[in-house]
Design a protein around this nucleic acid. Structure first.
Length: 880
RNA sequence: GGGAGCAUAGCUCAGUUGGUUUAGAGCAUCUGCCUUACAAGCAGAGGGUCCGCGGUUCGAACCCGUGUGCUCCCACCA
């Protein structure tokens, strides 16, 4: 079969993915084997694949494919998250385009549209994962609003309520005025903003004024007090006196409290309990009136008295000009401050007082904190333990209600008089409410379920067990087999949102950790180090990249640049490197398959020792040892989750050791046959390399595996070969050969001997046997026609020193003795300096007295070796 | 404001308990090659005050202190 000039991934990739699926290789059932389980961090059902997913899922696929090849029962569970805020926002936007307002729909009608949308677009990201080669068990595809999942969420809510961990309370919360919903603290992103600091004079009741500074002048309509520091001499005479709020003329008290900083602004703070977290706390302390001047959409309410129904930012402008007109503004300063924005809708968050559902975290968090601190759950890299501890030790209650329709509806029912009951369904709630209200006549029509939904994370924290129906069908065979899962791969950004909470839910509901290892990936940034984001437009089109470079190249590119826990700077040139690597493999395949037609008959013994030329025996022996050595290294790196390093190591093994050295060493001369034993060994090595690489680059490795040898099995499920302990003598012999070849090639280069010009080599050595063995390879690799041995220097030749041995290169060429001398002198200077530093060390009595014997022995050897090299160089200089 | 982390070649990073490290790799750069697998390639080379300063030690890229610069997390002083 004719192989294409370059590797063409597209057809090959879809061919193998379809083949693997048809063989059911990715599906897993409990059996006698050791399980290896990963649950995917479920992407938003609205999501499309971006670089973060690419990194994250490539890592998971590497781990899963490796486990599969280790003979474990690998199970990688796919799925999506209903992502309440994000999805609801998309559906609302879609409806708006069709000219439908959400407010014109009933809840059921809206949910109808939402499900329709989910069915149509919800699977896109899962299809995209197939393109990347991800070996997920598609039969297990889960969704956080599947019927059993929904039921479990409701059950957990009921259970935590019964245990007293869930309560309903009025609190200051972060309010998203666009989505009209509460946000948890984690969903607020603070950004630096250029604001103004307005200095506003409030008239004092007894005459005169007091000036306060604020960035939010529109909130003065809700002012309930002015607060000053008790020790501030400027205001001591005003404690307990009254000031008048401009424009609306409300009378407010001046109170002292340590909270106020003397040297900020004017040292006087206006207190607006309804619209600021800290002011609210002051309000509680001094029993101040809470005047909520804002509606849920960010417009001003009746309570504001002025500008009713107008937007908060419009009002800010208006009130400033009105205050200026009435001479209340003393001055306006430019001021940079941090303002909270909604993570989902990017509007300025409004602190707002509201009645919400909460989870009390303290008790739930204790076992989860311990599990990570005593390494029952391992974090990779471990530095995230600190971060985790800090958050867990200062954990605050979790606001879980969201004013949305898309999600798990809060299972609480209310009567018109405000009584409520938490239950699994309306009927149960009715029974409870009859008792609570002591009204046996209460009917189901008279009670109403809470309109709100639960925070998305309140469902995703059950993911590691509920994908196996672990709560809805307790202790079933599957959950018992697969749980706890092995590795969670996720971004450090969601360590609190999700990781911490899964650990809590795991201990609460399974009495067991949800996973053994957590691998935190870095954040994918662009070349300039900026985070990839839609608004910056710096996220590349992943599917476009896969089309352009191939999935294997994309996987390679993203992995080669991503050390564990460090951010990765994404650069398309890494994908080029990946593509080039694929091409290199492809060309090596072309070379080896070319040999197939030209096999020399293997002799009867068919063993390496029988190969008539010792040349190939050495090459084969060396590479076999090298391959086994690296296979062990890679295994150890992967055990430590050093995936990037493992890939780099394999890359170098394939490119340098296999292609640049080994294949060149065994390559037969033009039109010459290759020994069958060598050929078979070479094919075996190539297969083993493909095995090692398969988890990283599944497609090309599978293709090459089949093209090499027409195998009936598939690499995807083939178990790893057993590695052998490497022989260091053989490895050293290989290294020596490489060194000699490189040094002679360098000498050829420096003396401008054309590649086609042949040379003769004279070796002066005490160990000719070592070189006899490698003569043939050496000649081939440096284009020498003869290798001779000599006991004395050969005049008019180029000299190369390797340790104590000398190589005299005879070429049909004028020699540049000046340059050679310069080179030798440079070398000599280096060696002399080195020797001096060693001697200095050895002549230090304290060193000899204190250092370990093996360290001293080593220094002595360094000295002897350096001295030998120096005398060799000196001798060479004399011959010039 | 509180905390964590990082600083090694032009770039991205390795460098295990301090001693085969006057420091390695990939990419980029330079030189020579269209050598029958591969120019998306081959061969070779150059490139570093291990952020500054001080200390511990026989010995420091590594440990300690300090300064500088960067990144992230938490808090959110109006």
């Amino acid at each position: 079969m004719e192989l294409s000039k370059n590797y063409l991934p597209t057809i090959i990739e879809s061919k193998w993915y379809a083949h693997w699926l048809s063989k059911d290789y990715f599906s897993s059932k409990p059996d006698h084997r050791e399980p290896y389980t990963i649950v995917i961090p479920p992407p938003n059902v609205t999501g499309v694949l971006h670089m973060g997913h690419c990194l994250n899922n490539t890592i998971q696929d590497i781990l899963i494919r490796r486990a599969r090849m280790q003979g474990k029962n690998a199970c990688w569970v796919p799925g999506t998250d209903h992502a309440s805020i994000a999805t609801e926002a998309k559906v609302v936007a879609m409806l708006r385009e069709r000219g439908i307002a959400k407010s014109s729909l009933s809840r059921d009608e809206f949910l109808g549209y939402a499900w329709e949308w989910k069915e149509k677009y919800g699977g896109i990201i899962l299809q995209q994962l197939r393109k990347m080669g991800c070996s997920l068990d598609w039969d297990r595809t889960s969704f956080t609003m599947d019927a059993h999942y929904y039921a479990s969420v409701i059950q957990v809510f009921n259970d935590l309520y019964k245990k007293g961990h869930i309560y309903r309370g009025k609190r200051m919360i972060n309010w998203d005025v666009k989505a009209k919903t509460a946000l948890s603290d984690e969903e607020v992103i603070y950004k630096e903003v250029q604001s103004n600091l307005y200095y506003i004079q409030y008239p004092l009741e007894e005459g005169g004024t007091i000036t306060i500074a604020t960035v939010r002048p529109e909130t003065i309509l809700g002012d309930a007090a002015i607060c000053v520091n008790p020790h501030d001499e400027r205001y001591k005479h005003l404690h307990g006196k009254y000031a008048i709020v401009p424009l609306i003329k409300r009378r407010i008290k001046i109170i002292p409290d340590d909270y106020v900083t003397v040297d900020f602004g004017t040292g006087a703070l206006k207190v607006t309990p309804a619209h600021d977290m800290n002011d609210y706390q002051l309000g509680q302390k001094y029993n101040l009136e809470v005047i909520d001047t804002m509606n849920d959409d960010g417009t001003l309410s009746e309570a504001a008295q002025l500008y009713i129904g107008e937007d908060r930012f419009a009002v800010r402008k208006k009130i400033v000009s009105d205050l200026e007109a009435a001479n209340y503004i003393e001055k306006i300063e430019a001021y940079t401050n941090q303002v909270g924005f909604s993570e989902r809708t990017d509007v300025v968050v409004e602190p707002r007082l509201s009645l919400q559902w909460w989870v009390s975290m303290k008790k739930l968090s204790n076992p989860a904190l311990d599990a990570v601190m005593n390494d029952e759950i391992h974090f990779h890299p471990a530095k995230f333990k600190n971060l985790y501890r800090h958050w867990m030790e200062n954990i605050k209650d979790w606001c879980i209600s969201r004013q949305l329709w898309w999600g798990h509806r809060i299972p609480a029912w209310y009567t018109t008089d405000g009584s409520f009951a938490v239950a699994n369904n309306a009927d149960e709630a009715l029974e409870q409410l009859k008792k609570i209200t002591k009204n046996e006549q209460l009917t189901i029509e008279q009670i109403k379920q809470d309109d709100d939904c639960l925070d998305t994370w309140f469902s995703s924290w059950l993911w590691p067990f509920e994908v196996f129906n672990g709560l809805s069908n307790k202790d079933n065979e599957e959950v018992n087999y697969y749980y706890p899962t092995n590795t969670l791969v996720t971004a450090p950004e969601i360590i609190f949102f999700w990781v911490a909470r899964m650990i809590m839910a795991g201990y609460e509901y399974k009495l067991e950790k949800p996973f053994k290892d957590v691998y935190f990936t870095g954040i994918v940034r662009d070349k300039q180090g900026r985070k990839m984001s839609k608004s910056l437009g710096n996220s590349p089109d992943l599917l476009g990249l896969i089309d352009q470079y191939g999935a294997d190249a994309v996987r390679f590119g993203i992995m080669i640049a991503s050390p564990a826990g460090n951010d990765i700077l994404f650069d398309e040139s890494a994908l080029e490197q990946g593509r080039n690597f694929n091409n290199k493999l492809w060309n090596a395949l072309k070379l080896v398959t070319m040999w197939k037609g030209k096999l020399a008959k293997a002799n009867s013994k068919n063993t390496l020792a029988s190969i008539d030329s010792s040349t190939e025996a050495i090459a084969v022996d060396w590479f076999e040892n090298r391959l086994n050595q690296v296979a062990r290294e890679v295994d150890s790196l992967l055990n430590q989750f050093k995936l990037s390093e493992a890939l780099k190591t394999l890359y170098s093994l394939v490119w340098d050791d296999f292609c640049s050295w080994y294949l060149e060493w065994v390559k037969p001369g033009f039109e010459q046959p290759i020994d069958a034993v060598v050929y078979n060994k070479t094919v075996l090595f190539f297969e083993q390399l493909m095995q090692l690489l398969h988890p990283f680059m599944p497609f090309i490795t599978e293709e090459i595996y089949h093209l090499l040898n027409d195998q009936s099995d598939d690499l995807c499920v083939k178990h790893y070969f057993a590695t052998k302990q490497e022989n260091h003598e053989i490895l050293d012999a290989g290294e020596l050969l490489k060194r000699v070849i490189t040094a002679i090639r360098d000498a050829r280069n420096k003396n401008q001997i054309k590649p086609k010009d042949t040379i003769q080599i004279y070796i002066q050595t005490e160990q000719p046997i070592a070189y006899k063995k490698i003569e043939a390879i050496l000649m081939k690799q440096v284009n020498a026609i003869h290798i001779n041995y000599t006991s004395e220097a050969i005049p008019n030749t180029i000299l190369v020193n390797i340790e104590k041995d000398k190589f005299f290169i005879e070429a049909d060429k004028e020699l540049d003795t000046v340059a050679m001398k310069e080179g030798l002198l440079k070398n000599l200077a280096y060696e002399n300096n080195f020797l001096a530093s060693v001697i200095k060390k050895l002549s230090n009595e304290k060193f000899v007295a204190n250092a370990k014997p093996e360290v001293i022995a080593l220094e002595r050897k360094k000295q002897a070796d350096a001295e030998a090299r120096i005398s060799t160089i000196e001798a060479s200089l004399k011959t010039l």
